[in-house]
Computed example of a mutant assay.
Amino acid sequence: MFAGNFRLKAGLAALSLTAAALALPSAAQADGVVNIYSQRQPFLIEPLLEAFTEKTGIQTEVLHLNEGLPERIAAEGQNSPADVILTVDIGRLAAVVDAGVTQPVEDEVINNAIPAQYRDPEGHWFGLTTRARVVYASKDRVEQDTITYEELADPKWKGKICVRSGQHQYNIALFASLIAHHGEEATEEWMKGLKANLARKPAGGDRDQAQAIAAGECDIALGNTYYVGLMMNNEEEPEQKEWAAAIKVLFPNSEDRGTHVNISGMALAKHAPNKENALKLMQFLVSPEAQEIYAERNYEYPVLPGAEISETVKSFGELKPDTLPLSEIAKNSDAASEMVDRVGLDDGPAS
Results as ranks from 00 to 15, higher is better:
148 T>I: 09
154 D>E: 12
328 E>K: 10
330 A>T: 03
78 Q>T: 15
48 L>Y: 12
50 E>A: 15
123 G>Y: 08
325 P>E: 08
45 I>F: 11
83 D>S: 15
226 Y>W: 08
245 A>I: 02
316 F>H: 09
176 A>E: 00
260 H>T: 01
174 L>S: 01
214 A>Q: 14
1 M>N: 12
300 E>Q: 11
77 G>E: 10
147 I>M: 13
271 H>T: 04
178 L>W: 04
324 L>W: 03
71 E>R: 12
209 Q>W: 03
202 P>E: 00
133 R>P: 01
327 S>D: 14
174 L>R: 04
186 A>Q: 09
208 D>M: 11
158 K>F: 05
42 P>Y: 01
42 P>V: 06
347 D>N: 07
276 E>Y: 00
146 T>S: 15
339 M>Q: 03
69 L>G: 08
159 G>W: 07
321 P>M: 07
61 E>V: 15
103 Q>S: 12
149 Y>T: 10
334 D>M: 01
148 T>P: 11
221 A>N: 04
103 Q>A: 13
218 C>N: 07
64 H>V: 11
184 E>C: 00
302 P>F: 06
34 V>S: 11
179 I>C: 02
236 E>C: 00
259 T>H: 03
7 R>H: 04
227 Y>L: 01
301 Y>E: 07
87 T>A: 13
167 Q>F: 06
86 L>P: 10
290 A>W: 09
15 L>C: 03
62 V>G: 07
115 P>L: 05
267 A>S: 13
76 E>G: 09
170 Y>M: 05
147 I>W: 11
141 R>T: 14
233 N>F: 00
60 T>F: 15
266 M>N: 00
93 L>I: 12
78 Q>E: 15
212 A>T: 04
141 R>F: 11
104 P>H: 07
58 I>W: 07
193 G>N: 02
32 G>S: 12
8 L>T: 13
203 A>Q: 08
142 V>G: 11
52 F>V: 12
140 D>L: 08
165 S>I: 01
99 A>S: 13
186 A>C: 01
123 G>S: 06
20 A>R: 14
231 M>D: 09
89 D>R: 07
241 K>N: 08
122 E>M: 11
121 P>I: 04
325 P>S: 12
131 R>H: 14
190 W>V: 00
43 F>Q: 14
13 A>T: 12
26 S>Q: 14
86 L>K: 12
292 E>W: 05
284 F>N: 11
162 C>H: 09
28 A>L: 04
351 S>T: 02
250 L>K: 04
221 A>C: 09
54 E>Q: 15
